[in-house]
Simulated scan of single mutants.
Amino acid sequence: MAAQWIKPSTRPDPIEDLVSGVDRYNPSNVSILEDYLYHQIRSEEYDLLANLAILKLYQFNPDLHNPDVVINILLKALAASPLPDFNLCISILDERTTPSSLDEPDPLPTTLPLLKVLQNLLYRCRFPAFWQTYNSEEFETLRDNYTVEVAGFENSIRQVAIRAVKATFTHITSQRLGSYLNLEGDALTAYVKQLAWAVDSATGNIVVPPNPDNQIEATVVQEQIKLPQLTKVISHAVKA
C-alpha cells in the first residue's frame, strides 16, 4: 500500500524522474504535471505525489495558480478516503496566496467548503448522507462543472464505501448496501455481482467475504513474568 502511494504502477518514467528530483520545483514543469493530472482524470488513475507537486509549485509561484486544477486535485484526493490525501492537499492550500491576476473570479473560495463537507462525511463513513448532500441542489455546480469531467468519480466513492463495508460487516442487507452505494434494483444487483459477493438464500442478505478485518479471532497473550522481577518492582514501590 505504501509503495503504491509513493510510486503508483501507472506513473510514467518521465513523471517519476520529475517528481523524484529537484525539477519538481521548477515552474517551467507545471504544465507537464497539469497535463498528467488531466490524464489521471480521464483514465481513472491517481498519483498523489505528482498532484502535491503542482500545489507546491502554485504555493511558490502564485501567478501560476489555476483554481480549476486545484479543484480537480481535491476531487481525486477525495476518493482516497480514509487516507489523509485530502488533508495533505488542504494543508498546502491554507498557506497559499490568492493571485489578483485571474481573468475570472476564483471558484475555490465557494467550492472548497463544499468539498470539505463531502470529505467529512466520507471520513465518518456517513455514506447515505454523502450521497444525499452530493446530489442536492447546493452541489449542482460542483457536479455540472467538475465531477462530471472526472471519469469514474462516483464509482471511486463507492469503492470507499466498499472498503468500509468489507472491514465492518460479514452480512449486510441489500437496502443498507444500496444506501451506501447510491444504487438500487438491477444496478445494485449488477454491482454486487461484479464484486463476486454471494447472497444468502435463507435471509436474502449479501454475504461479505471473510477478510482479516471482519473476522473475530480470539488471541491469547501469555506474560512471562518471573518472581524475582516482581520482587524488584515491589521493592521499588515500597521505597517510593
Results as ranks from 00 to 15, higher is better:
171 H>K: 14
169 F>W: 13
195 L>H: 05
160 V>L: 01
168 T>H: 12
180 Y>C: 11
147 T>V: 09
152 G>F: 04
183 L>V: 07
158 R>T: 02
180 Y>E: 02
142 L>M: 09
160 V>T: 02
118 L>Q: 01
141 T>A: 14
164 A>H: 15
122 L>C: 01
162 I>K: 07
114 L>G: 01
172 I>N: 08
154 E>F: 08
170 T>H: 15
187 A>T: 11
127 F>C: 05
189 T>K: 12
159 Q>F: 05
114 L>K: 13
144 D>N: 15
189 T>L: 10
162 I>E: 05
123 Y>S: 10
146 Y>I: 07
129 A>L: 14
150 V>A: 02
139 F>G: 02
184 E>A: 13
190 A>K: 12
139 F>W: 06
192 V>R: 02
122 L>K: 00
168 T>I: 08
127 F>N: 03
173 T>Y: 10
114 L>S: 09
118 L>R: 01
134 Y>T: 06
165 V>S: 07
130 F>S: 02
173 T>E: 09
164 A>P: 01
182 N>A: 13
138 E>D: 11
117 V>N: 05
148 V>A: 13
182 N>S: 13
147 T>M: 07
140 E>G: 04
147 T>R: 05
113 P>N: 03
145 N>D: 15
125 C>L: 05
140 E>Q: 13
149 E>W: 14
134 Y>M: 04
121 L>T: 01
157 I>W: 04
178 G>D: 10
127 F>D: 02
196 A>N: 14
172 I>M: 12
196 A>L: 14
196 A>M: 12
183 L>M: 08
182 N>W: 10
195 L>Q: 06
196 A>T: 14
161 A>S: 07
182 N>M: 03
191 Y>V: 01
155 N>E: 12
180 Y>S: 04
185 G>E: 05
133 T>W: 05
170 T>C: 13
121 L>V: 02
123 Y>W: 05
153 F>S: 03
155 N>C: 04
138 E>S: 11
161 A>G: 00
176 R>K: 15
194 Q>Y: 09
167 A>T: 09
179 S>N: 12
154 E>R: 13
166 K>P: 04
160 V>S: 00
133 T>N: 04
196 A>F: 12
120 N>M: 08
165 V>L: 09
134 Y>K: 06
187 A>V: 11
121 L>Y: 00
154 E>Y: 08
197 W>E: 01
137 E>V: 08
123 Y>H: 09
130 F>L: 10
189 T>A: 10
160 V>M: 00
176 R>H: 12
178 G>Y: 12
166 K>F: 07
149 E>G: 08
143 R>T: 03
119 Q>E: 11
154 E>P: 06
191 Y>P: 03
172 I>W: 11
157 I>H: 03
140 E>P: 02
118 L>W: 04
115 L>A: 03
170 T>N: 15
137 E>I: 07
172 I>P: 07
134 Y>F: 13
165 V>I: 15
183 L>Q: 06
187 A>D: 12
131 W>Q: 06
135 N>I: 03
146 Y>F: 15
163 R>V: 06
121 L>D: 00
163 R>W: 04
198 A>G: 12
184 E>I: 09
134 Y>I: 01
142 L>K: 03
172 I>Q: 09
181 L>S: 03
152 G>S: 02
154 E>Q: 14
171 H>Y: 14
192 V>W: 04
186 D>T: 15
181 L>D: 01
145 N>K: 14
189 T>F: 10
160 V>N: 00
118 L>G: 00
167 A>L: 05
194 Q>P: 00
173 T>V: 09
